[in-house]
Amino acid sequence: MEPFLFVDFSRCIACQACWAACRREHGGVSRLHLLCFQEAAVPLACRQCRKAPCAGFCPEGALVQEEGRGVKFLEERCTHCGLCAAACPFGVLEIVPGPVPDLSRCDLCRRRWEEGLMPVCVLTCPTRALSLDAGGAVGRRRRAQPAAFPVS
Protein backbone atom coordinates (compact mmCIF):
# COMPACT_ATOMS: atom_id res chain seq x y z
CA MET A 1 0.00 0.00 0.00
CA GLU A 2 1.27 3.44 -0.89
CA PRO A 3 1.66 5.91 1.98
CA PHE A 4 -0.92 8.66 2.23
CA LEU A 5 -2.25 11.21 4.63
CA PHE A 6 -5.11 9.65 6.58
CA VAL A 7 -7.75 11.90 8.10
CA ASP A 8 -10.02 10.81 10.93
CA PHE A 9 -12.94 13.22 10.51
CA SER A 10 -14.44 12.27 13.84
CA ARG A 11 -11.37 13.82 15.51
CA CYS A 12 -11.00 16.94 13.35
CA ILE A 13 -12.08 20.10 15.19
CA ALA A 14 -11.60 22.45 12.23
CA CYS A 15 -8.89 24.46 14.01
CA GLN A 16 -6.94 24.96 10.73
CA ALA A 17 -3.61 24.26 12.43
CA CYS A 18 -2.67 21.73 9.71
CA TRP A 19 -3.39 24.27 6.99
CA ALA A 20 -1.35 26.97 8.72
CA ALA A 21 1.57 24.61 9.39
CA CYS A 22 1.56 23.44 5.77
CA ARG A 23 1.52 27.00 4.50
CA ARG A 24 4.44 27.96 6.71
CA GLU A 25 6.44 24.89 5.71
CA HIS A 26 5.90 25.38 1.98
CA GLY A 27 6.66 29.05 1.38
CA GLY A 28 3.27 30.63 1.99
CA VAL A 29 1.11 28.22 -0.04
CA SER A 30 -0.72 25.46 1.77
CA ARG A 31 -0.76 22.18 -0.11
CA LEU A 32 -3.54 21.04 2.15
CA HIS A 33 -7.08 22.22 1.47
CA LEU A 34 -9.49 22.61 4.32
CA LEU A 35 -13.17 22.44 3.42
CA CYS A 36 -15.51 23.51 6.18
CA PHE A 37 -19.07 22.24 6.41
CA GLN A 38 -21.62 22.80 9.11
CA GLU A 39 -21.04 19.45 10.80
CA ALA A 40 -17.37 18.87 10.07
CA ALA A 41 -14.21 20.08 8.36
CA VAL A 42 -12.41 18.02 5.75
CA PRO A 43 -8.68 18.43 5.22
CA LEU A 44 -7.86 17.31 1.67
CA ALA A 45 -4.41 16.56 0.28
CA CYS A 46 -2.80 14.52 -2.47
CA ARG A 47 -3.87 10.87 -2.28
CA GLN A 48 -0.62 9.59 -3.76
CA CYS A 49 -2.74 7.53 -6.21
CA ARG A 50 -1.19 4.25 -7.20
CA LYS A 51 -2.36 4.78 -10.78
CA ALA A 52 -1.99 8.54 -10.69
CA PRO A 53 -3.81 10.46 -13.45
CA CYS A 54 -1.46 13.43 -12.93
CA ALA A 55 1.56 11.20 -13.58
CA GLY A 56 -0.14 9.64 -16.58
CA PHE A 57 -1.03 13.00 -18.10
CA CYS A 58 2.30 14.76 -17.52
CA PRO A 59 3.94 15.01 -20.95
CA GLU A 60 7.43 15.14 -19.43
CA GLY A 61 7.25 12.29 -16.92
CA ALA A 62 7.88 14.76 -14.10
CA LEU A 63 5.46 12.97 -11.75
CA VAL A 64 6.22 9.33 -11.03
CA GLN A 65 4.90 6.78 -8.60
CA GLU A 66 7.76 5.68 -6.42
CA GLU A 67 7.22 2.33 -4.71
CA GLY A 68 6.42 2.86 -1.05
CA ARG A 69 6.94 6.62 -1.22
CA GLY A 70 3.92 7.93 -3.09
CA VAL A 71 4.00 10.22 -6.11
CA LYS A 72 7.36 11.87 -6.59
CA PHE A 73 7.79 15.22 -8.35
CA LEU A 74 10.93 15.55 -10.47
CA GLU A 75 11.24 19.31 -10.63
CA GLU A 76 14.00 19.35 -13.23
CA ARG A 77 11.67 17.72 -15.78
CA CYS A 78 8.68 20.03 -15.14
CA THR A 79 7.83 22.53 -17.89
CA HIS A 80 5.12 24.22 -15.76
CA CYS A 81 2.48 23.48 -18.41
CA GLY A 82 -0.30 22.84 -15.87
CA LEU A 83 -1.70 19.67 -17.44
CA CYS A 84 -1.32 17.73 -14.17
CA ALA A 85 -3.78 20.07 -12.45
CA ALA A 86 -6.41 19.30 -15.10
CA ALA A 87 -5.93 15.58 -14.48
CA CYS A 88 -6.10 15.46 -10.65
CA PRO A 89 -9.43 13.79 -9.72
CA PHE A 90 -9.55 15.48 -6.32
CA GLY A 91 -8.52 19.01 -7.26
CA VAL A 92 -5.63 18.90 -4.80
CA LEU A 93 -2.85 19.48 -7.30
CA GLU A 94 -2.85 23.18 -7.98
CA ILE A 95 -1.05 25.61 -10.17
CA VAL A 96 0.07 28.70 -8.27
CA PRO A 97 -0.05 31.61 -10.73
CA GLY A 98 3.07 33.68 -11.31
CA PRO A 99 5.57 34.51 -14.05
CA VAL A 100 6.50 30.85 -13.84
CA PRO A 101 3.39 29.04 -12.59
CA ASP A 102 4.34 26.65 -9.82
CA LEU A 103 2.94 23.30 -8.88
CA SER A 104 1.55 22.89 -5.38
CA ARG A 105 0.89 19.34 -4.22
CA CYS A 106 1.35 17.46 -0.95
CA ASP A 107 4.44 15.27 -1.13
CA LEU A 108 4.05 14.13 2.48
CA CYS A 109 6.86 16.55 3.40
CA ARG A 110 9.35 14.46 1.46
CA ARG A 111 12.32 16.54 2.57
CA ARG A 112 11.40 16.03 6.22
CA TRP A 113 10.74 12.37 5.55
CA GLU A 114 14.27 11.94 4.24
CA GLU A 115 15.47 13.35 7.57
CA GLY A 116 13.26 10.90 9.42
CA LEU A 117 10.69 13.54 10.43
CA MET A 118 6.90 13.45 10.20
CA PRO A 119 4.89 15.77 7.91
CA VAL A 120 4.26 19.11 9.67
CA CYS A 121 0.46 18.75 9.51
CA VAL A 122 0.64 15.39 11.32
CA LEU A 123 2.91 16.87 13.97
CA THR A 124 0.77 19.97 14.41
CA CYS A 125 -2.71 18.45 14.62
CA PRO A 126 -3.75 18.80 18.28
CA THR A 127 -6.34 16.01 18.13
CA ARG A 128 -4.28 13.54 16.07
CA ALA A 129 -6.88 13.55 13.34
CA LEU A 130 -4.10 13.37 10.76
CA SER A 131 -1.74 10.47 10.48
CA LEU A 132 0.71 9.21 7.92
CA ASP A 133 -0.40 5.83 6.77
CA ALA A 134 2.71 4.22 5.41
CA GLY A 135 2.14 0.60 6.30
CA GLY A 136 -1.55 -0.08 5.91
CA ALA A 137 -2.41 0.91 9.51
CA VAL A 138 -5.83 2.13 8.39
CA GLY A 139 -6.64 -1.25 6.90
CA ARG A 140 -5.55 -3.01 10.09
CA ARG A 141 -7.61 -0.64 12.22
CA ARG A 142 -10.67 -1.20 10.03
CA ARG A 143 -10.35 -4.96 10.23
CA ALA A 144 -9.95 -4.80 14.01
CA GLN A 145 -13.22 -2.91 14.40
CA PRO A 146 -16.45 -4.89 14.61
CA ALA A 147 -18.94 -4.12 11.86
CA ALA A 148 -20.38 -0.70 12.61
CA PHE A 149 -23.78 -1.46 11.13
CA PRO A 150 -25.61 -4.71 10.47
CA VAL A 151 -25.46 -6.13 7.00
CA SER A 152 -28.93 -7.09 5.86
Binding site: F9, H33, L35, V42, L44, A85, C88, P89, F90, G91
Partner: peptide
Protein backbone atom coordinates in the same frame (compact mmCIF):
# COMPACT_ATOMS: atom_id res chain seq x y z
CA UNK B 1 -12.69 15.95 -15.79
CA UNK B 2 -15.79 18.07 -16.45
CA UNK B 3 -15.55 19.70 -13.00
CA UNK B 4 -13.23 22.52 -11.96
CA UNK B 5 -10.66 21.80 -9.21
CA UNK B 6 -12.72 23.63 -6.56
CA UNK B 7 -15.81 21.54 -7.35
CA UNK B 8 -13.70 18.37 -7.42
CA UNK B 9 -12.56 19.17 -3.86
CA UNK B 10 -16.10 19.95 -2.75
CA UNK B 11 -17.51 16.73 -4.21
CA UNK B 12 -14.68 14.66 -2.77
CA UNK B 13 -15.04 16.09 0.74
CA UNK B 14 -18.80 15.42 0.69
CA UNK B 15 -18.13 11.84 -0.42
CA UNK B 16 -15.62 11.42 2.41
CA UNK B 17 -18.02 12.83 4.99
Amino acid sequence: PSCCPACRRDLESRRLL
